[in-house]
């Protein structure tokens, strides 16, 4: 397969996996919890290496997910004491975990084959060089791994669609009809964690957050339908993948960084020109209303 295509597809699948979950995070006001979870992945990778001496995808995903769950439980625990607000709890826990990860990497860097740069920039440029042979066909490993995670997320969102919708919209009500909103929200964060671990390799820790939050927030500005919102978020992610890769090649820059920038530009555009909730549309509507009121009042007089 063409190297460029491998990278674009890897990036696109990463964006798909993130875009499927992002809208729910934005709607649950848990955007920053995803930030925390994606940072918690780093110590998970380090711990997996120290315990099992492997960086095989499955082991790393399990290790990362365990730490992500620990992160969420720690935040919940701090919050439930009533002594620490939820923002401060998030801001206490994830730097701790990330710092532990950084310390692990600096201490055991040679063993882990993971340098700190890759936690920031990702290693997507190397995606074409790591190939698995499946049934006689060479497929880039990253496409297989991230593709399956994207498929898992898709299955999760489709299967639990109405449960996710109800528990996000009205947790109190969904509890009375037996939907267990807290369990669903934990499940959601586990999915975020698994996505973050896998995406971590290609786009790095911080840009996972970008792909989780920015497309979801952009889609939120564009539509009033949940299904459309999810589809748009995935679409915006793909725009980021394609245009971001092109930008990185042209500008000789980090692919992860340019992907993030393209998503940022999409957000800015939506913020300005969204037909319903954009700044321009709102301003025009307000102006029109003011004028209509003025004419009506004048006519009355």
């Amino acid at each position: 397969m063409n190297d460029d295509l491998v990278i674009i597809i890897t990036a696109g699948l990463t964006a798909t996996a993130c875009g499927l979950l992002g809208p729910f995070l934005v709607l649950r006001r848990a955007a920053l919890l995803s930030d925390a979870v994606s940072h918690a992945v780093l110590p998970g990778i380090v711990a997996t290496w120290l315990l099992l001496h492997t960086r095989a995808p499955f082991a790393v995903i399990v290790g990362g997910a365990i730490f992500a769950v620990l992160c969420v439980l720690a935040i919940d625990g701090l919050r439930s004491t009533g002594l620490v607000r939820s923002d401060a709890a998030i801001g206490l826990v994830f730097p701790l975990l990330f710092a532990l990860g950084v310390l692990g990497v600096t201490r055991y860097a040679s063993g882990i084959h993971l340098d700190l740069d890759s936690t920031i920039y990702g290693e997507i440029a190397f995606a074409p060089f790591d190939v698995w042979t499946i049934g006689g066909v060479d497929v880039a490993r990253s496409i297989v791994v991230i593709g399956s995670i994207a498929a898992l997320n898709l299955a999760f969102v489709i299967l639990a669609w109405k449960e996710l919708k109800a528990s996000t919209f009205d947790p109190g009500f969904s509890q009375t009809i037996g939907l267990r909103p807290q369990m669903l929200s934990r499940l959601m964060l586990v999915a975020v964690a698994i996505t973050a671990v896998t995406a971590f390799e290609s786009v790095g820790a911080i840009l996972v957050v970008t792909l989780l939050i920015v497309p979801g927030a952009t889609a939120y500005l564009l539509t009033d339908r949940l299904a459309v919102m999810v589809a748009l978020a995935v679409g915006i992610g793909w725009i980021g993948a394609v245009a971001g890769y092109w930008g990185a090649v042209v500008g000789d820059s980090s692919i992860a960084g340019t992907m993030g920038l393209v998503c940022a530009v999409c957000f800015a555009l939506a913020l300005l020109v969204s037909p319903k909730y954009g700044l321009i549309a709102t301003a025009v509507r307000r102006r029109r209303r003011a004028r209509a009121t003025a004419t009506a009042l004048a006519a009355e007089r």
Partner: peptide
């Protein structure tokens, strides 16, 4: 609890949520 329909106080609901009236009512059948 399946014998009860509970209508809680309404402040907690997010009115900006991308959901239609029909979908909200359909939740009653979940």
């Amino acid at each position: 609890l399946d014998h009860v329909a509970y209508v809680p106080q309404r402040e907690a609901v997010d009115w900006d949520f991308p959901i239609t009236v029909g979908e909200v009512v359909a939740m009653g059948r979940y």
